[in-house]
Design a protein around this nucleic acid. Sequence first.
DNA 1: AATGAATGAGAGTTCATTCAT
DNA 2: TATGAATGAACTCTCATTCAT
Lengths: 209, 209, 209, 209
Amino acid sequence: MVRGTGIKAKNEANQDSVSRRLQIIRAAAALFIRKGLLKTTVREIARESGITVGTLYHYIKTKNDIMSLIMDEELALVNDFIREGEKALSQSGPVEALRLAIERYFRMTAEIQDLNLFWYQETKNLSPDQRKRLLEYEYQFAETFNRILMAGCKSGHFRDHDTLLTAHDIIVLGDMWAFRRWFVGKHCTLDEFLKHQTNLILSGICNST
Amino acid sequence: MVRGTGIKAKNEANQDSVSRRLQIIRAAAALFIRKGLLKTTVREIARESGITVGTLYHYIKTKNDIMSLIMDEELALVNDFIREGEKALSQSGPVEALRLAIERYFRMTAEIQDLNLFWYQETKNLSPDQRKRLLEYEYQFAETFNRILMAGCKSGHFRDHDTLLTAHDIIVLGDMWAFRRWFVGKHCTLDEFLKHQTNLILSGICNST
Amino acid sequence: MVRGTGIKAKNEANQDSVSRRLQIIRAAAALFIRKGLLKTTVREIARESGITVGTLYHYIKTKNDIMSLIMDEELALVNDFIREGEKALSQSGPVEALRLAIERYFRMTAEIQDLNLFWYQETKNLSPDQRKRLLEYEYQFAETFNRILMAGCKSGHFRDHDTLLTAHDIIVLGDMWAFRRWFVGKHCTLDEFLKHQTNLILSGICNST
Amino acid sequence: MVRGTGIKAKNEANQDSVSRRLQIIRAAAALFIRKGLLKTTVREIARESGITVGTLYHYIKTKNDIMSLIMDEELALVNDFIREGEKALSQSGPVEALRLAIERYFRMTAEIQDLNLFWYQETKNLSPDQRKRLLEYEYQFAETFNRILMAGCKSGHFRDHDTLLTAHDIIVLGDMWAFRRWFVGKHCTLDEFLKHQTNLILSGICNST
DNA sequence: AATGAATGAGAGTTCATTCAT
DNA sequence: TATGAATGAACTCTCATTCAT
C-alpha cells in the first residue's frame, strides 16, 4: 500500500532493543506518510507496531523523537550516495559522471519517494535541529552535483553558468517523481522519466559541438 | 514577516460581510502559512483577525471551510494566467510565447510563494473536494504550457519530445522559488533565477540551428 | 406534520404586538415539540417565525419565557374544560356525567396531544414557577373528575373507593393517546380508544346491578 | 436523594474495567435522572464518578454511549420479568396469573421508577437505535400481558375485548407510579396503589358471575 | 521489560443574549 | 420597531505523556 519508505525490516526474530526501535520506526514512518505527522497518534503507532503505548515509551522519548530516528535511518542512504558520487567523477568524464549521478539520485529518491514527500510536507512540524539536519542533507546532495557540474564547465563540456542553481534544479527535477506522483506516476515509467529529465538537463547545459 | 500570500486587502474601512470574510481569510492564510493548518487554532485566527471566536463563526462554517475560501481567492490569479496564456501564443512565435509564459508564471508564483508552498505541504489535510480542485489548477497550468510546447514542436522550433512532462518540469522549476526558498532566496534574485531557468529549459528543448 | 398543538393562528394580517407574540409562540411550540426545548435554538424560532433574532427579543424576554407564553395559550382550554365540567354534573346523573367528562377530556387532550406530550417530557427543563403552574392544571383536572366520582359514590352508582386516584387514572388513560401514540395511533381510532377506556373505567368502578 | 435507579453497585473494591464502567453508569444515571440528559455535562459525570474527563473517555466512547450502557443494565430486569411471566401463566388461572403479573410489573417498575421516568422524558434525545430498542421492550411487556389476557378471554374469565389495548393500559397504570410521583407518592403507599389499580383493572375486564 | 489506566490542558464549535445602528 | 453582528462562556471530545503495578 505505502510505497517506498526505503526503510527495510531487519530480522524480526531478533527482538533486541535495536530491532524494537526499528519496528517502531517502520510503523511510524508508514503512518506518518499516510496520515501526516500531526494526525498520527502515538496510540496508532503503538498498535501498528504491535506493542502498547507504555512499551513504546521505553524505546522513544517523545513522539517527535521518532522523526529523528526516521531521519537517522535515511542518513545511511544519503551517505552512500555522496561517497559513491566522488568515485564516479574520478573515473569518467563529467558528462558521463553527471549522467550516472542523476541516475543514481533519481533511483534512490524514487525508492524512498514516500519519505521524500514526507519531509517536504512536514518541514513545518520539525524541531529546529531536525530542520537543520534536513537542510544539510540537501546541501550535500546539491554540492555533489555541483562539483561534477563545475568540473564539466572547467573542462569545457558544459557552458559556463550558475552550476549550484543547476544542481538544485536536478534535485528538484528528480524529487518531482515523489511530489508530482499523481501525474508522473500515471504518465510514464521511472526509466522514461529518467531519460527525459537527463536529456533536458544535459541539452540545457552542454556546449553544442 | 510573511511574504507574498498574494491575497490583497481591500478597503479596510468597508467592514461589510465580504470584507470581514477577507479579513479572516488573510489572517488565517498568514497563520496557516507560518504554523501549518493543524497547528493553527481557531482562537488564534480570531485573535489575528481582531475579532472573537463567536464572531469568526458568523463568517465561516468550519475551520476547514477557511481553506476553501483561501482557494477561492487564489482562483482569480490562476484564471488570469490561463486566459492571458492563450493570447500570448496567438501573437508571437512559440519560443517567444514560451519565454513569456514562463516569465508570467514565475512572477505570479513568486508573488504567492507562501500560499504555493502551503498547498504543497497541506495536501494531506485537505478534504477530497479541495484536493481535487487543487489538482485541477495544476492540470490547467500544465496544459497551458503544453499547448505552447506542442505548437513549438509542430513548427520545428522545439525538438520532438514528451511536451506534457516538460510542462510539469517548467512548473516545478518555477515553484522551486517557493519551496527551496531557503536556498534560492539567498542565492540569487528572482530576475536571475528567471533567466537561469528560462535558459535551461529553452536550451533543453530547442532545436539547435 | 406536527399534529395537535391546539394553538390556533389568529388573523395574520393583524400584525400588532399580540399577534406577533402568537406567531412566535406557534413557531416555537412546533419546534419545541419536534426537537425538544433544549435542542431548539432561538435562531430557529426566529427563522420559523419569519422574523430576526433581534426582533424576537422585542416580544419575549428570554427563551424560557416562551414556555410560559405557550402555557398561557393552553390555559384557556383548560379553563373551558373545568367550567363545563361543573355544568354537566348538575344536569345528569354521575354515570352520564363521568362518561361526558371522559369524552370531553379525551377529545381535548387528543387535540393538543403534541403539547401534552411536550409537557410530560420537558418538566425537568421548566422553571419552578412553570412547574408549579403545570401541576396546578393537573390537580384541577383531577379535582373535576374527583367531584363527579365522589358524587357517584355517594349516590351508590359507584362502589366506594379511592376516587382521587381513579381520577388520576382516568387522566393517564387519556394522556396515553399522546405518549403512547406509537402504539395507540396505529392500533385504533380515537373513537374506539375512547369507547374502550370508558368501558374499562366504568366497569371498574360501577356497582353491578 | 435519587430514588430507585434499580442499577445496583457491585463490590466497590473490585476496580476493574467492568466495575469502572458500572461506576460511571450509575453516576451518569443519577445525574441524567436529576438534571436531564442535555443539561448533564460530561464533566459532571466525571466528577460524580470520582474520575477525570480523560479517564471517563477510556470507558465510554461518547456521552450518548452512556445511554446505551444504562439501557443494557436495565435489560436484565426486563428479561427476568418476561421469562417469569411465562411460568406464572402455566401454573395458575388467568385471573391469578394477571394479578401476579401486575404485581410483579408494578414492583419492578417502582424499583426503577427514576429510570422509567427518564426514558419517558428523553425519548427525543435518543438515537434511532436506542429508540427502537426501547420500543421493543415496551412491546414485549405488552405482549406478556396480552397473552394472559387472551387466555382469560378464551377461558371465559374475562369479557371479550381489545386485550392488547388493555395490556398497554395496565403498563401505563403502573408507570404512573413513576411519572405522577408528585401525586401518587404522597397520596398512598405502593401496596395501596397496587391494590387499587389491580381492582380497577380486574373489575374492568372480568365477567361478573 | 511491559502494561494501560489516568491525566488535564486544549482543540473546534455552539448559542442565548445584547446593542449600536 | 427592526436588525444581525458581536460576544464569550460552556460544551464534547482528543491526546501526548506519566507511572504504579
